[in-house]
């Protein structure tokens, strides 16, 4: 029972020509240790939603509970919440500002008021987790490649040792290799540290391979919420809201339509292979 969103509503710039109802009656429970993917096309409210989870944006309706406490209570310390729920923004490399990589990563832990030794330890540790080697630690963050910058920025949040890690489209604008590296590292962090991870993406393919649960956003509403298999079973409806299920889902349905009785709930290439092999063995008997 980590984060509960209760009838969350959010309107941008209410009462003006720019008014935008970005979130509509969102009810979600995010449990400890889950690996969740939030999916939706651009403008569906994903970023707005996750900014509520660490109190950066105050809902215009409804409330958020973190470990049972209402974060909108007067004496609730939002600053503490922000360190427990680490949020990596989209294009996080745009927020780097220090002269060296190490100093930039130290910014978070320093803000927590930790002793210098602990700050150093956490910074080195976080950089190691995202695969930034010792040779880059004293480089200027602005000399690094796009993928490296992004990993430094992610380390900046990891160094605060959050209980929940939220990443907003961490793979946007990266090449396939950089994308896989970052996603693998995130999966590893989830496995080793047993923290809750929420991955925002508009690519089903990215998410399907890693997460245990998918939340689909459309026009500010959470339309589907469940295990990847359950969500992808709605692949026709997903298409209507501008999303696509992973390609294997289509392949398996096509096989089935062609008269081959395979199961259709595979979400990754490996599962699809197993399903087809299972059918093949059955057939040979």
């Amino acid at each position: 029972m980590a984060i509960i969103l209760d009838k969350l509503d959010y309107v941008y710039s209410p009462g003006t020509a720019y008014e935008k109802h970005a979130l509509k009656n969102i009810n979600l429970v995010i449990n400890d240790g889950e690996f969740i993917g939030i999916i939706g096309h651009t403008g569906s409210g994903k970023s707005t939603l996750i900014q509520h989870m660490n109190g950066l944006v105050k809902a215009t309706g409804g409330t958020v509970y973190y470990n049972g406490a209402d974060i909108y209570d007067e004496d609730y310390k939002l600053k503490d919440l922000r360190t427990k729920v680490g949020l990596v923004f989209q294009y996080p490399e745009h927020q780097l500002f220090e002269t060296t990589v190490l100093k930039d990563v130290q910014f978070g832990p320093k803000n927590l008021g930790l002793p210098p030794l602990e700050v150093d330890l956490r910074a080195y540790d976080a950089l190691k987790q995202v695969g930034i080697g010792d040779d880059l630690i004293d480089a200027s963050p602005f000399e690094l490649s796009g993928g490296q910058k992004r990993r430094v920025a992610i380390a900046g949040v990891l160094a605060m040792k959050p209980e929940v890690l939220i990443l907003d489209e961490p793979t946007a604008g990266l090449d396939p290799k950089g994308r896989d590296e970052i996603l693998d590292q995130i999966a590893k962090i989830h496995k080793e540290q047993k923290i809750t991870v929420i991955l925002v993406s508009h690519s089903m393919e990215d998410v399907a391979k890693y997460v245990d649960r998918i939340i689909v956003m459309n026009h500010g509403e959470a339309v589907y919420d469940g295990a990847p298999k359950e969500v992808f079973a709605h692949y026709k409806e997903l298409e209507q809201i501008g999303l696509a299920a992973p390609q294997v889902t289509y392949a398996m349905h096509a096989l089935r339509d062609a008269g081959i009785p395979v199961t259709t709930d595979a979400t990754t290439v490996e599962e699809a292979r197993d399903a087809i092999l299972a059918w093949y063995r059955e057939e040979k008997k």
Binding site: L56, Q95, G108
Partner: peptide
């Protein structure tokens, strides 16, 4: 956006 991002890193 930048203010929010730094706040998420504990900036005050």
């Amino acid at each position: 956006k930048i203010m929010k991002a730094q706040q998420a890193r504990g900036a005050d």
